[in-house]
Structures are given as structure tokens and as C-alpha cells.
Amino acid sequence: MPVRVVDTSSPSQVSGTTAGNTLPPPCTLLSVGQSFSGTQNVSSLQKDEAWRVNVRIKGCDLDHGYLCGTMEALNVPMADTPVVTFWEGEIVDTKNYTFFTGKWGATAEDDIKHWTKFPSFPPLLSQVEVDGGKSLDLSNYPYIFMRWKEQYFVNVGPDCGLTIAGFYYVCFSCNDGSINGFYYDPNSSPFQKLELKSNNDEKSGFRFSTYELQ
């Protein structure tokens, strides 16, 4: 089958006349039902202090740049049980959302500071500085950038002594389904790192479930 050969190592900039899809590509490893496990370093300085974290994707609506799911923190010092939160994500798709957060207490400077911590971001930096990345074509870029904001505690009350005031800058790799993130909350320790790997592994194989709302 003849296929188009394209160099995808760097994202291109949309020229004024080319229409078509510039949104990040759909990726099966980031679809509903997929789960991820890893850690979150609570302090950027003490590497040992890390919570084990499980994430599951529960909803995905690429047209609206929307993703949501749950995050379970396992060895939280103050809690007797794992703490589960529900989060909603904004996919930086240049249509619904740009790299600039514009809320949750994050300035454009905070945005750049966090995004640049992802090794896959620098090729985008110059354009993001100009317009937040609005004119970038991310349709063939193998990384998907997102912001995840926890909305409520699922299994504990809001007075559990934990905060969900901040949000995560997130970078998903379409290659292997790994996720990296940095928690941002002006009142918490900076650059808490989230590192997750896809729970599909090569022993049992890859499985995909589905549901659809009417």
C-alpha cells in the first residue's frame, strides 16, 4: 500500500493556507480503560519520598480536548487507605487548549518553566513563546501534552488533610504509553514529579475495553 513518508521528528508550523487536522493524534494507549502505575515524588529534593500512584482513564473526548480518570495514591502518610481522586484533563490540542494555562494561578512563565522540563518540549518552545502553540501542527507529534486537574476525592472526605488545589503538567508518550508529569501548586513543594508506565506489559498482552455513552 503506498504511504506518505514524513519526517515526524519535529512538529511543523501550520502555514496560513493549509487547513486539515492539526490536532494531536488519537492513541490507543491513552483510551478509556487504560491504566498506568508509577510514583509521585512528593519533594523534588528527597528522591526517596515517593507515593505509589495508579491512574485509570475513564473518559476521553478528543473533539473537546477532554480526558478524565482517577488517580489512586497508595502509601500516603496521613491516610489509612489509598486515596482516590477524580481528575479532568485538558489536552493541549491548539484548538480547545494551548500551552498557556491562563488559570489555576499559573502564569505563562510558570507554564514555560514546567513544559521545558519535558525533553520532548524544546522543539516547540519558540512557537509556544509566540502564541501558546496555537499555530503548531501536532497531528504527527508522538507526544501529547495535557493538564490534569483533580476535581474531587472519591473515597475520602475533603477534610482528609490532603489538598488537590494544584494541577499537573503532563506529557504522554505515544511510543510506549509512559506518562511524566509535574505537580504545580504555589503552596506545595515545586516540581513534584509524576512518573507512570502503561500497565499493559509484554507478558500478558495488550487489552482494550470499551464503553459508549448514548
Binding site: 500500500m1 504511504v3 506518505r4 513518508v5 514524513v6 515526524t8 493524534p25 488519537p26 492513541c27 490507543t28 497531528s139 504527527n140 508522538p142 505515544c174 511510543n175
Partner: peptide
């Protein structure tokens, strides 16, 4: 040989898989 034709598939997900 079919898969070799697909390593540059226009769909990123197909290409990577």
C-alpha cells in the same frame, strides 16, 4: 512485507504499532 509498508503509515498510532 505488509508491515514494512506501514512503518510510515499516515496515522501515527498505526505507524508506532
Amino acid at each position: 512485507s505488509q508491515l514494512k509498508n506501514m512503518v510510515n503509515d499516515p496515522c501515527l498510532d498505526v505507524k508506532l504499532r
